[in-house]
């Protein structure tokens, strides 16, 4: 089932990617080509196979509950596009 232009627009919105109108047909074709490759998986019988998320199947290590970080705000905010009074600024959020 090939993606339509409107599907691509929906995906781009979910991913918050602003696409050029003019590029949409080309992007749609490219995604369909990739999904065509990916869909070859469907031929494989994977009944009863446990999905593998990590190659080594290790388990999570736990960290002791200790405060190890100190205030580095100025250094970290030096790379921020827009800050004021120690806050990161974004366009007005309406709730």
């Amino acid at each position: 089932m090939a993606l339509q232009r409107c599907d691509v627009e929906k995906i781009a919105h979910l991913a918050r990617l602003g696409l050029n109108e003019g590029e949409l047909p080309r992007i749609t074709d490219a995604l369909n080509s990739i999904l065509g490759l990916v869909d070859q998986m469907q031929a494989v019988d994977t009944t009863g196979i446990e999905p593998l998320a990590h190659p080594l199947e290790a388990t999570q290590r736990l960290r002791p509950d200790q405060v190890t970080e100190s205030n580095q705000r100025d250094r970290y905010q030096a790379v921020a596009p827009s800050t004021e009074n120690g806050l990161y600024l974004v366009p007005k959020v309406i709730e």
Binding site: S82, E84, N85, L87, Y88, L89, V90, P91, K92, V93
Partner: peptide, 15 residues
Amino acid sequence: KSLHEDFNGATGIDL
């Protein structure tokens, strides 16, 4: 936290 006091029309973010 999003702080909605007015920062020249912007919202401030405190993480």
